[in-house]
Design a protein around this nucleic acid. Structure first.
Lengths: 219, 219
DNA sequence: ACCTGAACACCGTTCAAGT
DNA sequence: ACCTGAACACCGTTCAAGT
């Protein structure tokens, strides 16, 4: 019988899945060739038999995540119109990124595009075409959506991150409008306060502004 | 008289400006402590007398760029309404990023926010408030704009990057809609073809979709 | 076919030492 | 006060060698 510690041979799949788990557990910086090998009970140099170089590993895990996204959107039921269907699919894709919080940064810095990502976009283009968009407008729409088409929006700066209390007073004096915004949202509107740092709500708000705008341009 | 090769003492400012020049010339990966020191005619270890660590250098050059942005928007003449003014300022900020193409990636990965960036946002909030927005809607608007508020949109994937010719045929068969879009835009519409890979135009299109949507919500 | 040890050319950073 | 040399603990990657 096989003992649990029996040696499983390495493979590209095992390397990529270990890399995803490593990133999930300890973030992208933990994904080094040496650490990855350790996780697999092998030496760093052994990895090079299965992957070309570290970039190849990074491209590979983008592809793994893109497959998860395609699986997720495949389970989405179509809505009443293009907008509802696209919205549901984007929110389903977003859930994958919520499980792999390191992935947006990686997607944003890849130069070559995974074929799984291309397939995702292909279906998106198809849905918008079926919804009455010209190819030209779809093209503009993809640029307008940017990373939101895939389910994430890179936040540069969380306008709510600095709670009113921890802004140094001399700095606060230079930022009357930002401080005013923070103050008002923090106490005047309990409903909004609930959603205050709720990125999901902000994501949906931004997404709907764009989808509504595109729908109007379509007509 | 001073000879041109006379030794100028290091300073935080010199280090940061050298880092910006190095990134402009050779990209972010070229910005290493050792290379930076070399550029300044010093040893890597000398830098640590003027900056705390490499992260400090990166935070510092974000601040340098943010100051350039604030200088640029300060020269913008107000428009007829909030939307025109905000639009002009954002496009002025964008020009700074066009001079420092490595900067978007850096802005997106900083955890602490430069005070110069906060001042930029403070003025933006002020302009929108003056234009009739509630603080609550301004807050949503900042999230909806995301990095576009600062003048860039991280493109994950350029829908025009793969010119129809260089897509392998077996892959193309799996991407009928994407291939269709590429084909149509490439020959049917000379006007659009001009703007085909024109990021500036796409940026403005996306920006206007959002600004128009926000303007409607304001009313 | 698959894995490894030793080695190379890089990193960022510390610390004691120089002027 | 300002700069440096030597050293440490890391990287990714090559290459010849092991089974």
């Amino acid at each position: 019988m096989a003992t649990p510690t029996e040696r499983i041979p390495l493979s590209r799949e095992r390397v990529l899945h270990a890399a995803v788990e490593l990133a999930d557990a300890h973030g992208l910086p933990a994904v080094t060739m040496r650490r990855l090998a350790e996780e697999l009970g092998a030496e760093a140099m052994s990895l090079y038999y299965h992957v070309a170089k570290k970039e190849d590993v990074l491209d590979g895990i983008v592809d793994v995540v893109a497959h998860e996204i395609n699986d997720a959107v495949a389970r989405v039921e179509p809505g009443a119109d293009w907008k509802q269907t696209v919205r549901r699919r984007i929110l389903a894709a977003r859930e994958v990124f919520l499980r792999h919080r390191w992935a947006p940064e990686l997607f944003a810095t890849r130069s070559s595009t995974s074929t799984a990502v291309l397939r995702y976009y292909d279906e998106l283009v198809g849905l918008m075409r079926a919804g009455g968009f010209s190819y030209d407008l779809v093209h503009h729409a993809l640029h307008a959506l940017g990373s939101r088409a895939l389910g994430f929006s890179q936040e540069l700066f969380d306008p709510g991150a600095g709670a009113s209390t921890d802004v140094p007073t001399e700095l606060a004096a230079q930022l009357p409008n930002l401080v005013g915004m923070l103050g008002e949202i923090a106490h005047d509107d309990p409903d909004s306060t609930l959603g205050w740092c709720d990125d999901q709500r902000e994501f949906e708000f931004g997404l709907d502004v764009i989808l509504d705008g595109l729908d109007r341009l379509r007509a």
